[in-house]
Amino acid sequence: MEPQNSSSSSHRALQNLLAALALLTCFSAIFYVYYKPTETANWQKCPAIPQHAVCRDICISALQKPNQIHIINNTCTVNLTSISSHFTQTSTAKTPDTVILIWTWPFGAKFDLDSCSSMFDIHDCHLTDNRSYFEKADGVFFHHRDIYEDLSNVPNQPRPRLQKWVWMNMESPSNSPRYPSLNDLFNLTSSYRLDSDISVPYGRLIRGKTNGIIPKKTKLVCWIVSNWNSAYKRSQYYEELKEHITIDVYGNAFHKRISSEDYTSVVSSCRFYLSFENSIHKDYITEKLFNPLILGTVPVVLGPPRRNYEELIPAGAFIHIEDFSTPEGLAQHLKLLEKNEDLYMQYFSWREDLVASESRFGLEHACRACDHIRRNQNYRVVNELNGWYWG
């Protein structure tokens, strides 16, 4: 009997040893599968395996031997789904929002600070005008026309090393004061210029089919202008053009002020609208172009060269004054289109594939600046802002 007891004890000891080895093998396999070393590995941050885990055969299937199958099936089962869920929950953390501080409201006009997501599909951005956020803001937003020449209304404390200062301006160089002290002050630019860090043109044509028919036309050529200056090229061109074609004029310059509601009805009732810019500069193509496109009217443009316009809209969507040697030649072409409806309607063929829209002044610049800063963490500074913008 004594030898039998000894044999029984030895057998139990062997079973215990094999069970311990199986358990050790199981946890070694789990560690091998889930541990992914990185350069910043920190043992203290590694999530623990949840208690009461159940390990299935797959956890150490690669280590199975014929004499280990009964041990694996009976003593070592781990629930991989449970462990995976635990690791996912403990290792994923929401990236904090990018914070943009609106230091100066453009022309004092405030906008909705919570619209980046709904308006532009830009997420994880937090806009604020609370200056107590200065130290922790990722970017600070300045409107050029609201900056004092002596810079007395910009922050007087040192800029945090990684913080971006965004210079925003939608006025042309001719209508923007030039301050020598702006060089080396900002990190990013946002303007209508296509070579800005954050380019926001006055409008866009995007993929889509424009709904609705072309409004009925009761006038041939229209122009709405309030800022009259006889030295402007547009004023001089108008004076010559009106000698060869009838132009319906509105605005303070002609003592015919119209409301926002009247603007829509007037522009849409005209076959052609004089989209004449007040100054001529690279990329300076304003709402004077995009509003007629939206309202179903053909714009006749005066501004930068035709090729510059064609960077934003199709060549057949507008008429450029430079297409004709004289204002009289332009007038004759417009009269021809008045009599030939088929030729006139060709100027709207772009509407089959594109939709015109305006930019959202201020809000769009801030949202897109936030998105840019979030995606680009590099350091930079704008050394020659004056040379780049004013030339």
Rank of each mutant, 00 (worst) to 15 (best):
C125Q: 06
L127W: 02
L127M: 01
L127G: 06
T128P: 08
D129F: 05
D129R: 08
N130L: 05
R131F: 10
S132V: 12
Y133A: 10
Y133F: 03
Y133Q: 07
K136V: 03
A137Y: 05
G139D: 11
V140C: 07
V140F: 02
F142Y: 14
H143I: 09
R145N: 02
D146A: 08
I147V: 15
E149N: 15
D150N: 03
S152Y: 08
V154L: 05
V154Y: 05
P155S: 13
N156K: 15
N156C: 15
Q157R: 06
P158N: 04
P160F: 01
L162E: 14
L162R: 14
Q163H: 02
Q163G: 02
K164S: 01
K164G: 00
W165L: 06
W165I: 08
V166T: 04
M168F: 11
N169M: 09
M170V: 01
E171Q: 10
E171M: 11
S176I: 09
S176A: 06
P177V: 02
P177M: 08
P180R: 12
N183P: 09
N183D: 12
D184Y: 13
D184H: 13
D184I: 13
L185K: 12
L185T: 10
F186G: 09
F186P: 03
F186R: 02
N187P: 04
S190D: 08
S190F: 05
S191I: 13
S191K: 14
Y192P: 05
Y192Q: 01
Y192S: 04
R193T: 08
R193F: 09
R193M: 09
D195Y: 01
S196M: 07
D197N: 13
D197E: 12
D197Y: 10
I198H: 05
S199F: 06
V200T: 04
P201W: 00
P201D: 00
P201I: 03
P201F: 09
P201C: 02
P201N: 00
P201S: 01
Y202F: 14
G203Q: 09
L205G: 08
I206S: 15
I206P: 14
R207Q: 14
R207G: 14
